[in-house]
């Protein structure tokens, strides 16, 4: 064995030792909760299941039914609302069809979508840095046992999350989001759930056969990544939020592309949208949509919209410190 090769072999051994050390060092007391979180992240995308769930935000509550199916040919999903006017969304991999029987309209949306069936190292790192993870009691939800997991924010810049994860499959049966005062702001919970035993025919639309003469609208997703740091910088970035990506995307009714910058702490995301200032007067405003806070303000002859499922103060900090660094 040459000296060089010996050196390489030694390096590999050193790396193996280092890697095992790293693995241990990176496993705090929350390992168990993290394991559940990983299992959950995977389950929601890879399991076959059908169920009825309630979704509550503010004083609004509604019921929907979902069927999810995966095989070697891909990923399929059907969602129908059970309250109010009927709506049905059928997803066949990247193609999404939305049936609106009341207005006899079919919306067809094509385009590649982001999809990754697991928690990435960056995400796990952000989550453990910004949240305390704990496992809670095993409860019973929709006839299944589930393990409670709590993610308590380490500061006031983000919301708290609680999940209840079906113990054998990892499917999240309950998800709750709490604001900075501990008040529940969003709840999702299955009331009935069947895991496994799903067949493709259960995902067929009940409107497909009768919608032949309905109005059809089509759209195609369009965006491309921006290389480097871009010309917009957040000078006072909230602690724990890393810049995730920047893309240029086309928005309906907008001739010029809109800049979309995303920040994330591993669990929550904040989006910054920047468009040329519209001809009508500059507008500043704040609003809230479910768990999502939204702030709009003009900056450097552009209109900036910042939104995310984080406290309003976090959104404001980003909106107020956004600066144009271009020519």
């Amino acid at each position: 064995m040459t000296a060089r090769r010996l050196q390489f072999a030694g390096l590999i051994v050193a790396l193996a030792i280092a890697a095992s050390g790293v693995a241990q060092a990176a496993q705090p007391a929350s390992t168990d909760a993290l394991t559940w979180l990983r299992k959950m992240a995977d389950a929601a995308h890879t399991l076959d299941y059908a169920g009825t769930f309630i979704y509550q935000h503010g004083s609004t509550m509604e019921t929907s039914r979902i069927v999810h199916f995966t095989d070697a040919s891909g990923d399929y999903e059907k969602l129908e609302t059970l309250d109010g006017p009927p709506r049905e969304i059928v997803r066949d991999n990247d193609n999404v069809t939305c049936y609106l029987p009341r207005s006899k309209t079919v919306l067809i949306d094509k385009g590649q979508r982001r999809r990754f069936p697991t928690l990435l190292p960056a995400q796990v790192d952000g989550i453990t840095r910004n949240y305390d993870l704990h496992t809670g009691a095993v409860r019973r939800v929709a006839g299944h046992h589930c393990q409670a997991i709590r993610l308590t924010p380490k500061d006031k810049l983000r919301y708290g999350h609680e999940f209840c994860v079906e113990t054998s499959s990892g499917l999240p049966l309950v998800a709750r989001m709490y604001d900075e005062n501990g008040k529940l702001i969003e709840l999702f919970a299955f009331s009935t759930i069947k895991i496994g035993g799903i067949t493709r025919d259960m995902l067929e639309s009940k409107y497909a056969a009768v919608s032949g003469d309905w109005k059809i609208e089509r759209s195609v997703l369009s965006e491309h990544a921006v290389k480097g740091d871009g010309v917009w910088q957040v000078e006072d970035r909230p602690a724990g939020f890393a810049r995730l990506t920047e893309v240029q995307r086309m928005i309906a009714g907008q001739p010029q592309p809109v800049t979309h910058i995303v920040f994330s702490d591993g669990l929550a995301a904040v989006s910054v949208f920047i468009e040329p200032l519209p001809a009508d007067a500059p507008r500043t405003g704040q609003s809230r949509q479910g768990a999502v806070n939204i702030v709009t303000r003009p900056v450097a002859n552009h209109l900036v919209t910042v939104m995310g499922e984080v406290p309003a103060a976090t959104i404001m900090q980003i909106a107020n410190s956004l600066a144009f660094k271009g020519q």
């Binding site: 929601a44 995308h45 979704y55 509604e62 006017p85 999350h161 928005i251 979309h260 669990l267 999502v292």
Partner: peptide, 29 residues
């Protein structure tokens, strides 16, 4: 704002974790 909300949710890890959330939030009535 609606389009922005949807674009935002495509990037939201907490939505991704639940799998369902983007649909829930966007079809809510």
């Amino acid at each position: 704002i609606s389009e922005y909300l949807i674009a935002h949710q495509e990037f939201s890890p907490s939505s991704a974790l639940q799998g369902l959330a983007p649909y829930i939030r966007t079809v809510s009535v």
